[in-house]
Nucleic acid binder design. Structure first.
Lengths: 247, 247
DNA sequence: TGGGAATGTTGATGTGGATCAAACCAATTC
DNA sequence: GAATTGGTTTGATCCACATCAACATTCCCA
């Protein structure tokens, strides 16, 4: 009985899915575009896709065709080795771009999995190429997005290659906090969307180590932890954990 | 007395520096371009630059302006943490592209240092943008290059996050071997251009561990090591080190 | 051509984080 | 409201790699 009504509501929402009135337009592809250019972008991004918690936007080996802008929700990207070991290579939230790994070999090289019910904007890659040949600003922005992904990964390499467990966790929390802040959320309190195991996988640690280190940070008065809820009590203290030679 | 003659030789060589008759054109930017398009590329890449061993092409924080295609020689890229710890983020040889980390923030975020006397082609980034708006093939190729850099870094993250020392070294050697092969050099014998310390830094290990592991591989008959000279004696064996649960 | 600085090897010992194991807790589900 | 399930915490022990140290080798360049 309610079904038709619900469907209509969704239709209306879909109509409004255009980039030009998206609340994320200041941190997504539309940055710096004029109204005119935005209209063109609207024609390119015509699909939104809901992704339920646990489902994936794309999987490794899958044919590449589109990029995805996270509209809402939270994702992880993971790599799987032949022997089954897998590793989280990133966590992604609203405004982040997914799928750029697929361009090089025309197939995806990792899995993008939703950690909560989420929504992405589907950006057909061919259209993006076309449009970015036309719109200099869009081209520039797209290149910047890719470049920043490279730099982000540099950071992770640094973390994995030269930091101790406490430093990794501190860097992780500070990074999350900073990203939440830039999206208008509280810098000092947030809910983790991922498990200790996923954090560990991302940071090259075991989940027990993650848990222990959280506990230690709590004892030291740096953070408050209650399951997935994190309060950052002493962000300067956390920063000083980074680049501290030893315990 | 010889100087003028030498200078003229260099001039001639400089004239021939065009992409269209570069021996690397099949693994560098020119891939897939028609003669016509190649001519345009030639106009873009008009500078070659010699880089002496130990010198850098660019340094972290430096203003970004150009990309660099390695023409000959060998480079490492490194990141430095505030506290001085530094980490090698990659090794780069002929045909590789350097500097893409700089696009995002309009300044470089790592150092690119020559490990032997080398030569790079300077690609002014503005020109590349321009030209790739014109030449679809070039645009595609450039995007692929960036994407592959992302995928390469994914691989390093996997290595740093989930592999043990022996696996890291094995993966490293196989990767080098494969890259030499694709450049027409021997897959089974090559000279390392970097020190044990640099290898260790790249792999998240100490130089002693690198040295010991090389020795172990040698004892096991997998490789022959003599200082910087490496012979791969049993590449299948090396592959089987990867993804082996334990010693 | 020799002497000193880098670089590399190998051994002995130490330790941070992994592993193994056991509770504990919160959220569902029956 | 008992039972199940997925996630988290905490303790005891272990081990892969780091660290410290001594020596060997190679590379420079004075």
């Amino acid at each position: 009985m309610n079904a038709p009504k619900l469907a209509r509501v969704i239709d209306i929402r879909a109509l409004k899915s255009a980039c030009s009135n998206c609340s994320l337009r200041e941190m997504c592809l539309p940055i710096g575009l004029s109204q005119d250019e935005l209209d063109k972008l609207d024609q390119m991004v015509y699909t939104r896709k809901r992704v339920k918690r646990g489902d994936s936007v794309y999987r490794s080996e899958e044919k590449f065709g589109s990029l995805y802008a996270v509209r809402s929700g939270f994702f992880k990207t993971t790599l799987v080795m032949e022997d089954g070991r897998d590793q989280v290579t990133g966590f992604h939230m609203a405004g982040d771009m997914l799928g750029m790994d697929g361009i090089g070999a025309d197939q995806h090289s990792c899995n993008a999995v939703a950690l909560e019910d989420s929504e992405v904007c589907v950006i057909p890659y061919g259209r993006l190429e076309e449009l970015s040949r036309e719109l200099h600003v869009l081209q520039q922005h797209f290149h910047k997005v890719m470049s920043r992904e490279i730099v982000r990964e540099h950071g992770v390499m640094l973390l994995l290659g030269s930091m101790r467990a406490e430093e990794r966790l501190a860097a992780f929390l500070l990074n999350l906090s900073q990203r939440f802040t830039s999206r208008g959320y509280s810098a000092s309190e947030f809910n983790l969307r991922m498990t200790r195991e996923e954090i560990g996988s991302y940071l090259g640690l075991k989940l027990e180590t993650v848990s222990r280190t959280f506990s230690k940070f709590q004892e030291d008065g740096l953070i408050g932890v209650q399951q997935k809820n994190i309060r950052i009590l002493d962000s300067a203290g956390l920063k000083s954990v980074l680049g501290r030679d030893s315990a």
